[in-house]
Design a protein around this nucleic acid. Structure first.
Length: 280
DNA sequence: AGCCAGGACAAGT
DNA sequence: ACTTGTCATGGC
């Protein structure tokens, strides 16, 4: 049971297991946070927030009220989910998988965030054939441009209406390159309701992927990342160059994503983190 | 200078 | 169904 306590304008959350601020915010799933030492500072859901790891089992969220914690951050951070049970199931399904066991140990503090679906979709459209520092830079300039356009705060991620108003030219001017047309198409289809993001929560991964892939510039990988990091679908299994390496090097390509079970996406993230950030 | 980065698409086999 | 060149951009 988690212990929640207000303190100095923030909330202290104790009794946490399998959560590490640094690993969670620096494992390539989000792009609006900067990580240093034992803290992550950035933006989500139109708010600026700092998360600090006080100890292995305790974090501090600031600014934050108990109400905000319950209604927003607990779900965002997946602290409402029993990762001990999930990890146990994963291990039982992959009983003889020593590679995964090692990756799960090095990345034991990783949690899959439940980010805003629209922001996640755009972020991973931008991510294609791109590197993480530049992805962050583009997203940041996109938020600034959105604020400039609407008169709102650059803390918020601009909605589909704002992107439509920017137009392909405006988006291209933000150095998005060939992704400008993709972002514009995503904005048009979401704004018109041709693709209804809210409806994807109730769909299976395969069905939701089909819907997302109706957007130009959204293929299997971007769709999987959106479903995993934006919709909390833990079976979504993105395959990028690093995961491809893992699959060939560890398993000789003789493994299907489904063989990792209903938490295949989380397994993927452990493997990605281990191969990309630990093994180099 | 050339290659790579959390890819997708169109054109060609 | 599977392979290949192309798409902007910036860092190395």
């Amino acid at each position: 049971m988690l212990k929640i306590k207000s303190e100095n304008g923030g909330v202290r959350v104790g009794g946490i297991t399998f959560f590490d601020v640094t690993q969670t915010f620096d494992c390539g799933q989000c792009f609006r946070f900067t990580v240093e030492e034992n803290r992550a500072a950035g933006f989500a859901f139109g708010r600026e927030v700092t998360l600090t790891q006080l100890s292995e089992n305790e974090i501090y969220i600031n600014p934050c009220t108990e109400k905000e914690y319950r209604e927003l951050w607990e779900r965002y951070l997946s602290l409402d989910t029993d990762y001990g049970a999930i990890r146990a199931e994963l291990k039982s399904i992959r009983r003889d998988d020593e590679k995964l066991a090692l990756a799960m140990e090095t990345g034991r503090g990783i949690r899959i965030l439940r980010q805003d679906p629209w922001e996640t979709l755009c972020s991973f459209i931008i991510s294609q054939n791109n590197n993480i520092p530049r992805i962050k830079k583009i997203i940041d300039s996109l938020c600034r441009a959105g604020a400039e356009l609407t008169g709102g705060s650059p803390v918020a991620f601009p909605g589909p209406d704002a992107l439509v108003r920017m137009g392909t030219e405006g988006l291209f001017a933000l150095r998005t390159g060939f992704r400008a047309a993709y972002l514009y198409d995503a904005a048009c289809k979401v704004l018109s309701g041709e693709v209804e993001l809210g409806g994807l929560f109730g769909m299976s991964c395969a069905e939701a992927e089909t819907e997302l892939c109706r957007i130009k510039g959204v293929g299997p990988k971007v769709a999987a990342c959106t479903l995993l990091f934006g919709f909390g679908k833990l079976d979504a299994f993105p395959i990028d160059v690093w995961v491809r390496r893992v699959l060939t090097e560890y398993y000789g390509d003789s493994v299907a994503p489904s063989s990792f079970g209903r938490y295949a996406g989380l397994a993927q993230q452990y493997l990605f983190y281990h191969r990309r950030y630990v093994e180099g």
